[in-house]
Design a binder for these strands. Structure first.
Lengths: 359, 359
DNA sequence: GTTAGCACTCGTGCTTCGAGAGTGCTAACA
DNA sequence: TGTTAGCACTCTCGAAGCACGAGTGCTAAC
């Protein structure tokens, strides 16, 4: 988009102000903005041109101008200042991320909550395992006469377990035998290769008639298939109502309902690189046609890949949200890679050169 | 509350109709209701009395009547028909509950979703461990030179694990020694007795200078304290907007925000028996003063106790919601006790005598 | 104790109207 | 040629006024 310097300034001013106030912005208030020492009439002329270029529009003949999706797009691609996170902000994020490093789903929920708090938009977090996790190791622990624990280590370095109670008693020796057998036949084996025939072969090899082998194999299958399932978390949905564009209950409800659907969330646009901004009608889903989505990718270790995103009105503070989201995503990646969030992030942050920005 | 038979009929009719339409109900429409062959004027007189008793009220001088919270209370306590679940309904519930029996939090989320779907109100599910869980058994599994798995079994029969990678190598023999030591000193020990001095005593006893003992002990402490944390799930929040009483965005937002706060959810009224209905102003929280909460208890095994609840306007179909909630809670209890949801529930259901109810 | 009739009240939806904000256009100016 | 001041015009928004209808309370008759 080839814009004169003044047009750029005006477009930016319009968007900045509109993001702030949600009111159409008139030529006068732009004219009084420092940095532009021309009269409102001049601004009007420029704005009329910006409108004919499709970057601004008027809600009605005698109102101020409002950015179009295309206007936002130009802003995001060319005009957006790098928003600089304050020390207080990075501090909050670091502390929140550091405070607990627990189960993946817990981390996800926390990250979502954090993002939502920091952006005041609803946030979603999503983790999906790349298919193809396998069992790498296998142990059976005898607890008492008829109880034992299955402990399974997976190729993505997570460990899962299950407590099994049998209606009959087992011997330590049986378990040792079985665990050797399973380590031999079931490790490094993708789910689709664990067939009924493999299971019955194992049953024969072990001489098992009690069904233990089937129980254990069932657990493994369930485990591997549940890993393919993605987990999603939506937080801060009620933030939506902060924004006048969702004061219309029906609209808000439609969007909320859409966002509550895990399957839909999973279909939201994913970034090719680290971050993707999808503005209004660029969204495929009808429910999002006048909302924007900003989503960042984080790396959750070997076979896991995650997205963390924010949904809001097209009138969104793209620069601020993008900055925070990217910072959080980086933090998550480091955290899940087993690093220390705080130090990792502080380093990341300080060596990223960023321009100072007002407000 | 001592009401004449006709007053009861009228109160019930008013509530039933108001629940249906959300419009103040006038004497005329009650009069045309079958079962009462009196004129609207008579109904008016009765309604005036019900109003002076505090069971009904008029939004304004010349509108129909609306039940007061006290009116609902009388209805719930004395007048409510037992709602009979249709076979289709029990079937849906059974299938949904049966379909997957996974992790507790997964079950919770599913149960919440199911409840919300079946009642069309937002639902929450909550599980809290009674304090005082202890470790009952302890194992260490060597994976490779500097990696091992901690497997811990708890007094509530759940098993937890953690993969530990060390910056140095360990011997199988060391692990065996450590696990004996931990089994001796840390089992059956409530969290508050696991003191730094116990840990350092164990460190001395094992001759450990590497810090492994501290790592393991840290895991145990984290585990026990995380168990005390309750888990909550809120689902179907967007259902709220189905109801005209939440068309006011501010009101809806306040309530949604309140419900999204896990800490607040945990503070919601819990039943003494199996179910509790809290109507409008009976709620302590300001945000719930004009909403009602129906909550049922389910039993999640040894040390675990759960609640599943529904939040909606005071104009709520108490009888229907109560019936479904109670059925789901029973199903959950059976499921978590390891039973088969379907058979258990079908039995439960058929031997509960219930009156048939219209609509 | 019940019913019919009637005057009365009050919320709802509609229309009207004026204020205010912001524009486009024209004409003057540098 | 670009900028500015001025002005008529347009459109939204909120307030005020009004008619309608639903539902009541009361009274008098049954």
């Amino acid at each position: 988009m080839d814009l004169g310097e003044r047009k750029k300034k005006i477009l930016r001013a319009v968007i900045d102000q509109y993001v702030d106030t949600a009111e159409p912005v008139g030529s006068k208030s732009i004219a009084s903005d420092v940095g532009l020492s021309v009269s409102s009439a001049t601004i009007r002329n420029e704005m009329a041109e910006l409108e004919s270029m499709g970057l601004l529009e008027q809600p009605h003949t005698s109102a101020g101008r409002v950015p179009t999706p295309l206007g936002y797009r130009v802003y995001v691609n060319e005009l957006m200042h790098q928003h600089k996170l304050s020390l207080a902000e990075t501090d909050t994020i670091n502390r929140a991320l550091k405070s607990r490093m627990q189960q993946l789903d817990q981390i996800l929920a926390d990250a979502g909550r954090l993002t939502s708090q920091l952006t005041s938009y609803p946030a979603y977090a999503l983790a999906a395992a790349a298919a193809g996790a396998t069992v790498t190791r296998f142990d059976l622990i005898l607890v008492d006469q008829n109880t034992f624990i299955i402990v399974v280590m997976l190729s993505n370095k997570t460990v899962k377990n299950k407590l099994v109670t049998l209606p009959f008693s087992v011997e330590q020796a049986t378990l040792v035998k079985l665990s050797t057998l399973f380590n031999a036949s079931f490790t490094n084996m993708p789910e689709e290769q664990i067939t009924p025939s493999l299971i019955s072969a194992t049953e024969r090899a072990s001489g098992d008639t009690t069904g233990i082998v089937a129980v254990i194999a069932g657990f493994i299958i369930e485990l591997l298939s549940s890993l393919k399932l993605q987990q999603t978390h939506l937080t801060g949905a009620s933030n939506l109502f902060e924004y006048p564009e969702y004061r219309d209950v029906d609209k808000a409800q439609r969007l909320l309902r859409y966002l509550s659907d895990e399957n839909e969330l999973a279909k939201l646009p994913a970034p090719d690189g680290n971050m993707k901004i999808t503005i209004g009608p660029e969204n495929l889903a009808q429910e999002l046609k006048d909302s924007s989505v900003i989503v960042a990718r984080y790396d959750a270790g070997d076979d896991l890949q995650g997205l963390i995103g924010v949904v809001g009105p097209t009138r969104m503070d793209y620069s601020k949200v993008a900055a925070r989201l990217s910072y959080i995503a980086q933090g998550l990646s480091h955290l899940l890679a087993g690093g220390d969030a705080q130090t990792a992030l502080l380093t990341e942050n300080t060596d990223t050169s960023q321009k100072k920005r007002r407000k």
